[in-house]
Structures are given as C-alpha cells and as structure tokens.
C-alpha cells in the first residue's frame, strides 16, 4: 500500500476471528447430542402404531365335509329366519329420534319422536340413581290405553328439587302429560303423546317415547298387541 504517494507501509495482518466457524461447530455438536438424546429417549417410549389387519379364518375341524357344512349352514340360516319378526313391527332410532312402523318389510309410517336423554339423576337423600335411557333391544306392546293417566314416580319430583309425596297421593296423578293414548312396553316404558311438540326429534324424555298426536293415534289404531318394538 502507498500512503500519500510516499513509501509503502507494511500492514501487519490482524489475527482472523473464527467465531463463525466455532459457532457452526458448536451448533453441530448440539444437534448431534440432541439427536442422540432423542434416539435414547425414543427407545423408552411406546408409541401407538397402526398395523394392517389380516383376517384369518378358523381352521375347519377334521372330518367336516362339504355335505355336513351345508347342513349346518342350512340349520343356522333357518334359526335366523325363525328369529325375525313376522308381520308388523316398530323400529326406533334413538339417535335420530325416528320411529318407523314396518309391515311385511316395508316402512308404512315414519314419525319424529323424542327419546331418553341418557341423563343420570341422583336422589340426595339416599343416593338412589335413575338413568333416563330409552332401553335398547326388543320390547313388546303389552297394553294399549286411551287417555292414560301418569302416576308420577319419585324421580319426577326429585328432578324438580322437590320431596316426593307419599305413594298413592293425589299429587302424583297427572292426567295430561301422556297425551291421548299410551302403548305400554313393560317396565314403565310407554309410547305416548306430549304437551311439548316443539321438542319432538330431540332426546328429552326420561326413557319413554313421545310422539305427535297424529302419529300416536295412527299407532294406537293400527298396531296390535304383541307387536315387537326394536330400539337402537
């Protein structure tokens, strides 16, 4: 270098700083240590793994030829056919709150209904528990009643925060809530009417099935005693 056109000045080289390189080395070391730690930690874990499902048929017992197999199948098929209901039956979908009346395999009436809330009620006095479920499974129409009267059970009072009156008390008699007709399915479960028609299609009952007036009247007049009801 020439300063002011005079003698050249010798520049002493400044020591180069290698911070950048050290930083990279440090980060690389940290990454390696981190990765190794992660691998070690991962060996202690037990993650959920999805695997293919392979269906394997049960091995056929020895001595079972095609003829015996066909006979057993025929017997089981006949048992299934015998179990199915003949004629008219009712199907209730408790999730969608739909009731279907089926005759000879065809839906002849479909209605909006209300079913059980599934709520659990606990009596504060003795911790007795009620579950407001519409029962699942098969039931039978055991009895039909015009202008049914509801004898309010204990839970109807406890739910309102009231002490239940003694059994047989006139305060338990409610001639209005069940509507014009009642179709009794046993264990206190009834297909009946409602004062709260805007709640049809929702899960609001204590286990019974509520229907609108027209659908209830149709069922009362067309469904014979002994008709099977399938609730799911």
């Amino acid at each position: 270098m020439i300063a002011n056109g005079s003698e050249p000045i010798l520049e002493v080289p400044r020591p180069r700083r290698c911070w950048g390189r050290w930083l990279v080395v440090l980060l690389a070391c940290l990454a390696v240590v981190g990765a190794l730690s992660a691998v070690v930690l991962a060996r202690l874990g037990n993650p959920l793994t999805l695997v293919p499902l392979v269906a394997v048929s049960q091995a056929s017992p020895e001595g079972l030829d095609a003829k015996k197999l066909a006979l057993r199948a025929e017997k089981a098929q006949a048992a299934l056919e015998r179990a199915a209901p003949q004629g008219m039956y009712i199907v209730v979908d408790t999730y969608r709150n739909k009731l279907r009346l089926v005759e000879q395999g065809k839906v002849v009436r479909e209605a909006l209904c209300s079913t059980g809330t599934g709520i659990v009620l606990i009596d504060p006095r003795n911790k007795r528990k009620w579950v407001f479920d519409t029962p699942l499974g098969e039931r039978v129409i055991e009895r039909k009643q015009k202008n049914p009267v509801w004898m309010k059970p204990d839970w109807a009072f406890i739910e309102e925060g009231e002490e239940p009156p003694p059994p047989g008390s006139p305060d338990r008699v409610d001639p209005y809530s069940l509507g014009d007709y009642g179709l009794y399915m046993g264990d206190g479960y009834i297909i009946h009417g409602t004062l709260f028609k805007s709640l049809l299609g929702r899960r609001v009952t204590h286990g019974c099935i509520r229907l609108g007036d027209e659908d209830l009247a149709y069922l009362y007049h067309n469904v014979p005693l002994g008709t099977r009801v399938y609730l799911y």
Partner: peptide, 30 residues
C-alpha cells in the same frame, strides 16, 4: 336384532393398533 338389519354404517377403514417401540418394524395383526 333377531337377525335383521336395523341400520348400516359404512366403514372407511379398519386397522390394527398396538403400542410398539418405534424402532421395531410394525407387524400385521392377525
């Protein structure tokens, strides 16, 4: 119920699930 279909639900997929160490090759479930 009683051998008759009341309703049907389509199933999009059906798989096995198990808790396995991640370095183990997943085995199909029989």
């Amino acid at each position: 119920a009683r051998g008759m279909v009341l309703d049907k639900v389509p199933v999009k997929a059906c798989q096995g699930a198990a808790r396995q160490a991640f370095y183990v090759k997943p085995q199909p479930m029989e």
